[in-house]
Design a protein around this nucleic acid. Sequence first.
DNA 1: CTGTTAGCGCGTTCAG
DNA 2: CTGAACGCGCTAACAG
Lengths: 339, 339
Amino acid sequence: MTAEAPITRPSSADVARRAGVSRATVSYILNGRTDVRISEQTRDRVLAAVHDLGYVPNATARTLRAGRGNTVLIPMLELPASPASDAFTAHFARELAERDLCLLVHGGRERAGLEAARAWAELRPAAVIAHAQQCPPESVDFLRRAGVEVVALLGAHPDPATAAIPIPMDPNAVARAAADHLIRRGCRRLACLVPGDPLTILSVPRFETVKKVAAASGLLVERVDCDLTEQSLTPTITRWRAEPETRPDGVYAYNDEHALLLIEVLREAGLRVPSDIAVVGSGNFPMGRILRPHLTTTYGPAEHMAALAAAAIRAALDADDTPPPAEPPHPELIVRESA
Amino acid sequence: MTAEAPITRPSSADVARRAGVSRATVSYILNGRTDVRISEQTRDRVLAAVHDLGYVPNATARTLRAGRGNTVLIPMLELPASPASDAFTAHFARELAERDLCLLVHGGRERAGLEAARAWAELRPAAVIAHAQQCPPESVDFLRRAGVEVVALLGAHPDPATAAIPIPMDPNAVARAAADHLIRRGCRRLACLVPGDPLTILSVPRFETVKKVAAASGLLVERVDCDLTEQSLTPTITRWRAEPETRPDGVYAYNDEHALLLIEVLREAGLRVPSDIAVVGSGNFPMGRILRPHLTTTYGPAEHMAALAAAAIRAALDADDTPPPAEPPHPELIVRESA
DNA sequence: CTGTTAGCGCGTTCAG
DNA sequence: CTGAACGCGCTAACAG
């Protein structure tokens, strides 16, 4: 272990030397170019040299030369992973790989704003895809000036003033669908769980959405700030039990995890779901399907959205003029037992 | 939208031109080198030019020149994300960022073996960290020959024959701790849930682990192949209800999600947890803390392991000879109500 | 002290 | 099929 063997790091020059050809030839063969004819024997000699040396082309040099790489950068989120975000990432990676693009989840220190954009730009990816909130217009400009040709923004609205490609995706649509369902179901007093801390960025807009939907039907929405603990809900639920006339008859719980928590606390307080209070979650968590009462839930079609995002990026890279669809895909509603 | 503005892509030469200095001066200033003195005014002019042009150094060129980048590659897993894996990744990224290393989760098509190693090597990361199963010895050799100096393997055993850095991490330790607890608790017939499909890589070794622990106490373990659906468990649970003498009195459920599923199915079959059958999960999922009966669970200290992994990689990059700890951190056991 | 010139690292590509 | 230049940042050697 003491005398470390010096690392070979073979380059195309090494391959060329070993095969007795020029570097240009190696390049032509490895890129399978059809406009340059290479004899079978030369080809074999070169490929043998590649194999013998364990040569791997240096993407870094290729990117330098080409001006852009074949990677798509997506910044890591500060939010805890959910089945939905996980599915999106997995499908998105698969879709991009289909097109010879490599998804890289970027775990740098900065996750939003100009500093983050700087870190993303350094790697000269073919494209950067971020949430609209992480990447304000000045960051988009900055990225493009720095050489990132394609900047896609999840959940951004089409805007002729910016060069960013909007990927239709409404993080509040699940809340809207849930509120709609509760109201259609006959609920007349709504409440909305609003988890804090890292989830505020999502939970507050969802609350606003529910409020808007309810207002359209002349209904009010009680805001219940909480986290994923029973204690955070107990005071509210105690009050609800004590005041049957003013308590909500339908709750949007932000997601399925919070919905299951809420149902548990309600059960301990002697309130029945859905007869006393209907509960809708979001995200279609596996647990919601399994536990009792089976959870009514809304969720975005992660697979579909990943395909949409990948297609939009691909089109932009190919300078296709096919504009991406302006309408976000509709969320799904699964009606089970809880509402 | 028709006449796309040509992208500027400013290089250090542009900055130099604009500031009226040489490219070398720009480089010295941007790298804050102390061994070369630069006047305050020149510095300001250069920094102003950097800002005006929106210049971002090209990491690709820097990496090409330096031979290695400042990124650490970790391949994306085929497994669905869990709170544990999520926490590990998040903390790992943070730890690395602390040291000016940037974690990249690699979503390429291939996730294991030589083809994957090729894709990882292309990006010339400072280090690659993978699970030992994804990266057999020949992949390690290949990576190193291709210029990746540091290859770290999660869950690998120290092996003087290989250049890989083992990161102690025993994915079966949680199963061992759970089985230990069940046996200490007095269980005499064990069962083990073994989810299939994408989880087999983890679930089968955990089953083997439980079997080994049980054998040491002269106990047998029933293997229950299943997935995350009630139907997959119903036949087994029906049999358990019908044959009280031979049914297990303790079950290791692979993880908390499966544990909650099992408890639900048991409840519907009229079997009580833990009085009839004790259940232990793994992963310390939020839901396990909340739902009834509160779940007894084991989990690996993700934060600690992330720190360990980051430290090992850092040490290897600095050619520190401090060997990483050979012992994986002990899993935690949280005894709640289910066992 | 303050800064410049020149050449490297590696794959690609145009003109032979 | 080859020679040579290019893309961009880094740094050793050198000059004012």
